[in-house]
Amino acid sequence: MNNQEVTSILLVGVGGQGMILASKILAQVAIERGLDVKLSEIHGMAQRGGSVVTQVRLGPAVNSPLVEKGQAEFIMASEQLEAWRWLPFLKKGGTVVLSTQTINPMPVIIGSQKYPQNIAQRVEKAAGRSIAMNAFKMAVAAGQPRAANVVLLGALLREMGIGEEEGLAALTAVIPERFLEENRKAFASGYHFEK
């Protein structure tokens, strides 16, 4: 990203995965840079394990809070089916950062539909660039199973061209101190992930 144009990012996942924290850290990066930022999220029904999306737009001046189909420079997905579902929102040549974690939706659980196969490969083919990792396992390794989104955020910020120190500063400003250590580790493991 650069500071002269608006960057549009979509954070997708399953209700309860903590998408909102990741969006707050992104917003903090924008605020520190003196940029404008808008976030949009849908809650309500979202808490009940449904497909959820948070939209982040940052740049010199942001009008619409929405990221539309074909507009996102970046998609960060904390569950792979959600990466595939929201792929039409990616701009041609855009980047997808996804976790290979699988969470079966109800139609799959009750056997009325199959979970699509080879999603990471299919995303890789369609996107300009894609980085797939098991963010959940990496978060566990960092000592905080709930920090999968922070792992992914590390990788996303690197892809966005944001320095590690700058990202960590934003993280530190947003996350309560008692959770910082594991989250900084989680962030670093994502930031330095090599595919």
Partner: peptide, 14 residues
């Protein structure tokens, strides 16, 4: 990309 192949993920009872 076939939307029909993508299972919906509606909110559910916890």
């Amino acid at each position: 990309y076939d939307p029909a192949e993508i299972p919906m993920r509606p909110p559910v009872l916890c």
